[in-house]
Each structure stands twice: as structure tokens, then as C-alpha cells.
Design a protein around this nucleic acid. Sequence first.
DNA 1: CTGTTAGCGCGTTCAT
DNA 2: ATGAACGCGCTAACAG
Lengths: 350, 350
Amino acid sequence: MGKVGIKDIAERANVSTATVSYVLNGTRNVKPRTRERVLKVIEELNYTPNDIAKSLKSSRTNTIGVIAEDVTVFNVPEIIDGINHYADRNDMHILLTNLRLHKRVGHQYADVDQYRKYAENAVADLLSKQVEGIIYIGVHPRDVTGLINSRGKPIVYTYCYTQNDLSIQYNDEQASFDAMNYLIGKGHRRIAIISGRMDSLPSRLRFNGFYKAVTESELPFDPQLIKVGDWGLQSGYELTQQLLALNEPPTAILVMNDIMAVGAMRAATEAGVRIPEELSLVGFDNREFSDYLNPRITTMDLPLQQMGYSSMEALSSLIKGEQPEGNYSPLCTLIERDSVASPGSRQTPS
Amino acid sequence: MGKVGIKDIAERANVSTATVSYVLNGTRNVKPRTRERVLKVIEELNYTPNDIAKSLKSSRTNTIGVIAEDVTVFNVPEIIDGINHYADRNDMHILLTNLRLHKRVGHQYADVDQYRKYAENAVADLLSKQVEGIIYIGVHPRDVTGLINSRGKPIVYTYCYTQNDLSIQYNDEQASFDAMNYLIGKGHRRIAIISGRMDSLPSRLRFNGFYKAVTESELPFDPQLIKVGDWGLQSGYELTQQLLALNEPPTAILVMNDIMAVGAMRAATEAGVRIPEELSLVGFDNREFSDYLNPRITTMDLPLQQMGYSSMEALSSLIKGEQPEGNYSPLCTLIERDSVASPGSRQTPS
DNA sequence: CTGTTAGCGCGTTCAT
DNA sequence: ATGAACGCGCTAACAG
């Protein structure tokens, strides 16, 4: 049972290979009788088409390359899932490359030169494999201009961006603006913010949203309510302690990720400040664990699936030579859980 | 700038395409002078090899197919990471297919017929693409015999198994045995267990480990200490309440996943039972959140990375026609954190 | 309209 | 170091 090919079929069915090809692809009319005969032989011989040979001639592979900086980072699987969803519907295939950035260079991803070589290799391999386009998934939104030269092949970035190419990134500013308005709608006016590191774009954009909400709703602007963390649990913990020690502490805190929110919860608990009765908390990222904490954290969910899907949509347009169009800045969604209440409220009547 | 091919190089360097090929692959000696000339032209023309054409002739693609039942399930990314690690070192490539099982059929994965069609399509596509082997990653360890016909291509299963093919699965029994001995070493003798659903193999294997430890250490065997949950938070919560209501409650509980352990913690907290002073808890899975809870959960870490890596090792052997050998039942590792103490201990001296 | 013949795509490799 | 056949399926040109 050596590989059965189109010519084996042809022979056994007493037709030419051309006819078999026409039957297989419906490229031309074939008399029903012959057609049936061919199909039967295909069945009998258990023929499996060889896309490699096909691709060589057609110079189409229906395959795109996905380069993920690190698949083990929480946001990546959902993005890949979105990519797969589109790929599935459009009969495309995914060649996955995992740069394993965290395992290789730790969190030093700010220094592009540390891993340029990995990225270049990945692209070279993918191009050799004749992918029709590339999607690059970052580990953290940042400018990766100059990291990759896709040699004219279409490329779309997501969860990061470049100055020259298309990138799909959720709307950070709107997200924190929405979160603030939710808090304001609950009656809060002294709202603190614990941001991530300020050298990160999401931090700045989310701060913009915060500031815009403060301004539009004419909240008292108090610099003491602005804290800059480093995304880590400990920083959320310490900064919350500082906020609680203020003469006039905030009634709510917008925390720029769920991990720091855990730290914030811990600080509050230790200080005997009850959440949400005495302090409300909104997190960011909708990490899985935020649903398991006590209280469950109200947080902004990132449209990861959609980012993957949109990336593929855009890439497909690019491959077809069309102008990509669509919503390339999908919105985050607030997940209401149990860490927010109106200020001064009591869940249990006294 | 149309695609530059081997013949463009040949022409520009005044050699035959054969020579270029020999230079490119080092398949044969080429006079250094010619060699240099060819290399220079390759550089100038920015030549990108075409692996498709190469594969057609060599009938080797250096590509394997990975079918994941659902990439968004917590264990999968690490497994894929392990696969990538091996692939990277051995210059292999990954064609990723995501069945998206949870999104398509929910948690009905027990009924294989629900998604046989998806799996079959995936395999057919992969075979057409001429992958040299397949790795199948399940969402939950179970028998998937008959789901897939790989038509003679090597296939390795992980995080699930079949009766006929090789599968890589961590050692469940040993894991719970180890966890028990850890607890016993801390001085516990009344140890309860909250298992997952009993129609799941891991549940049974882990129960075996529990039972073996009870027997070997001659612990009192009390059926009241055996509770069967359903992997969900709520069941961990309720079963722990039952355990705490016993006349003689356990001093420690082995919980078969971290999610139920969260429920257990919650029940203990509400009952005013302090962890770990009055009740010790060991979880399973080392989910990310188990490090963020308070107290942090001591839990068994699954060797996911290694499962991916070993799967690739085994598959590679199979592809080469060798007999695969190696450790195909890697061990779990206990992650000591803060949810276990000796019974009757006090962290704070009274 | 149906079926066949033969050349092609791109790189590899054997015989010269 | 080279010419040419080859891998496998597609498709233009041609024949009946």
C-alpha cells in the first residue's frame, strides 16, 4: 500500500489523470458515468490528496503563519482560538510558531535585540513554507517596529503594534472610561487608580480614560488618588495600603489588572476594610481566578477571541489584495461581579 | 521582483541549478570559488527557499500536525509549549488544528459521536498537507479509542489515551500517593478526600493512590471521609461543609482539583475553621490562581510541558520507524505553599 | 461537451 | 559541474 496517487486512480478507472483531476475539483464537466466510476475507485483505494503537489502548481497554500511570542501567556490561547475559528470557516490552515519568549529571555521583552534572531528565524521558516500571510501575537502591547521583515508578505499584528503595519488592539482608553463611568454611576466620586508601569502604552491609554471620566463628570481631582504600580500583586497590595491610609480614602479603586486587584483585596482585608461595602474594586483582564476569589472581582473582559478573528479577517483581505476594513479596535466588556457597591452601602442591614 | 528561484540564482552565477542546490544543501562538494559566487548571488537576490517544491521531491515536510480538542483549556498551552520546544530544537514545524470542543459541543465530550466529524476532517486536512505524524491533545483524560483513523501515520495521544496507540499521560496514582504521604509526613492521620466524578479515570487513579497510602500507613479507614465531587467549585464547598460537620472531622483534605479546593477554602472560612491551622488542604493542577488565594494553595503541579515534549520525542521515534522509548508517565510535583500545616499546630503562639 | 496528451511548478539527484 | 528526469497534480491545447 504505497502512496496512492492520482495516476493510480486514473489507471484503475481507465481514464486519464486529467479526468480524475476534473472530478476531484469539479473544474470541468465530466460525464456522470465516468465520474461515478472515478469516485468509486477513489473510495476503494482510499486516496488522500496531496496538497503539497497541488500547492506547487497553484502557488496557493491556504496556510498562514502565526508567530506567538509566548503561547503560555494568558491572553494568547483565546486569540489563537479566534484565529482558528476564522481559519476553520475559510478552510485555511495555521502553521504555529512559538517564540517562547518568557522561557528564553524572561520578561526582558522590552529589548527587542534579545530575541530578534528568534523572530527572524521564525519568519524565514514560515516564508519557506510558503505561508500566504503572518499574524504576530505579542505578550504585551508595545511597539515592535523593526522586529520583523515579512518581505512583502501581508502581516497583521495583535496584542502589539508597529508604525507601519496593521494591528488589532482593543480599545484601552474606552475600557477604563467605561469602568469609571460604571463606578460613577454607582455613586462614587472619590475614585483612585492603580496603574501598571507607566512605560507601557496600555497604562497611559487607560489613564487617559480615567482622566477623561474624572473631567467629564467633574470629580474632585486629587493626585493622591493616582498610584503607579508595576502589574505585580505586591504593588497592588502596598499601593492600596497607602490609599487606605489617606485622610480621606477613596471609596473605589480602578486597578489596571486583576493581579494587582488581588493585592488590593488583601490589603483591604487586612486593614479590616470590607469589599465592596467600604471599598469598591474594578479590575482589568478578567483573569480566570477573578471569578474564584471572595468576593468575585468585577473586571473588564478583553475581547481576545475577537482580536484573533479580526486579525484573520484583516489578513485575508490583505492576501486578496483588498483594502482591509472592519473594527480593528474592539471594545472591552465590563463583567459585573461582587467587588463593587454604592459607597456607604451595607449588604447586611445593621 | 517576482519570486526568485533556484534557476535565477543559477543564471546569474553562471552555474547550473544542480550546483546551486548542492551549495544550498551541502549535499556535495563544490569548488570554493563557485560556492562563494553562488552564495553571493543568493544574498543579492534575497532568495527564499521553497520548501513546498523541496517536499514534493523528498516527500518529507518536517511538519507534524497537532490536533487540540480545545486550546483554551488550561492544560493545553503548556503542552503545546513543550511540543514547540522539541520542534524548535529539531527543526520541525507545527500545523495546529483546534477542534474548539468546548465552544462547539460544550462539555459533552463524553459522547464521541458529537464531534467525530470534526476530528475526522482535521485528520484528513492534516494528511493532505503531508504531515509526518500527529499529536492529539485531549481536554480531559479519557478513552478516545476509535475517534481517529490516522491511516497508518504515526500518532501519539496526550491528555487522553486509546487502546491501540501510544499515549503520554502523567502518573495520577503516584501523584495522589505522594500528596498523601506529604500530609502523613506532616502528622495527619484523619485525611479526607474529595474526588472528581467517578466516571473519570483520573479520579479512579487518584483514589487508588489515596487508598494505597491509607493502607500502607495504616491510617484509620473511614468511608465518611470519602466524598465524590464533580470538579466544580460548588461541590468542593458543599462536601467540605459535610466533612466539617462530622463528629470527628478530618484534619486534612486531599482535593482532586484546585477549583474544588477553592470551594473547600470558602466552606472552611465560613465555618470559622482556619486554614492551615485547623484544616490542611492539598489541591491538584497547580492552577494559576492557586498562588493568588489567601492562603496560597499547596497543590500538585502537572508536568504539562514535559508531556508535550515527550509526545514529540515519541512521535519522532515513530516517524523514524524506531521503537519509542522513554518515560511516558511523567510525575507530578508537589508545590508547597501555605495551605498545609501539622495538625493542631498554631502559626501564632498563644 | 467529454476525454486525452503533455508541459509545467521548483528543487533534487543520478548518470554523464 | 551539468543536463535532464523526476515527484504529483493542474490545466492549456487538442481530438473525437
